[in-house]
């Protein structure tokens, strides 16, 4: 079976861990629990006739730890870049992360997640407000772990892209 490392990246409290919990265990909690370091999960997805094992690295979003981020992203095949449109500065954090990745390990397939679409009336930005780098994403997806809106689509889209990349190599 093909196995790929995927990192969950974004500012703190944008909902990275909630996306993983919804995707892996189909559970959601309203209580915010900060991640320390990195939590590793695994989930098998089926893409057509192929089976892909995603090793999910849910990386903390704390700014002060960015110096160890290089170690966490080592060997990743692709990533989810998560922003919280109710907190526009989470886009600045995403920009910094994208630049760091491109510099450290080169461009990798990624999906932008505009998370918390259950709070859309509180969103302060839309897809049109995202910086130019978002045009390089496989897809920009509005999702909600709380309502289970398009969470599977997020991971499935990245998984398909990873498989296509592999076949192209």
């Amino acid at each position: 079976m093909i196995q790929k490392k995927v990192c969950m990246l974004g500012a703190f409290a944008v909902g990275k861990s909630s996306l993983v919990r919804r995707f892996v265990d189909n559970i959601y909690s309203d209580v915010y629990t900060t991640t320390i370091g990195v939590r590793i999960d695994k989930k098998i997805v089926n893409i057509g006739d192929e089976t892909l094992s995603l090793v999910l690295w849910d990386v903390h979003g704390e700014d002060s730890y960015q110096n160890v981020l290089s170690a966490y992203i080592r060997g990743m095949a692709g990533y989810l870049l998560v922003v919280d449109p109710t907190r526009p500065h989470s886009v600045d954090n995403a920009t910094n992360l994208k630049n760091l990745i491109d510099t450290e390990i080169g461009p990798k397939p990624f999906v932008v997640v505009m998370n918390k679409c259950d709070l859309k009336e509180q969103w302060l930005i839309t897809q049109d407000d995202l910086p130019d780098w978002a045009n390089d994403a496989e897809l920009i997806i509005e999702a909600s772990s709380k309502n289970d809106t398009d969470v599977n689509l997020v991971f499935q889209t990245l998984a398909e892209s990873l498989l296509q990349n592999r076949q192209a190599q």
Binding site: I36, G37, V38, R39, I40, V68, A71, Y72, R74
Partner: peptide, 8 residues
């Protein structure tokens, strides 16, 4: 290489 605080 050290990768700190991994929650396996």
């Amino acid at each position: 290489l050290v990768i700190p605080r991994m929650q396996i």
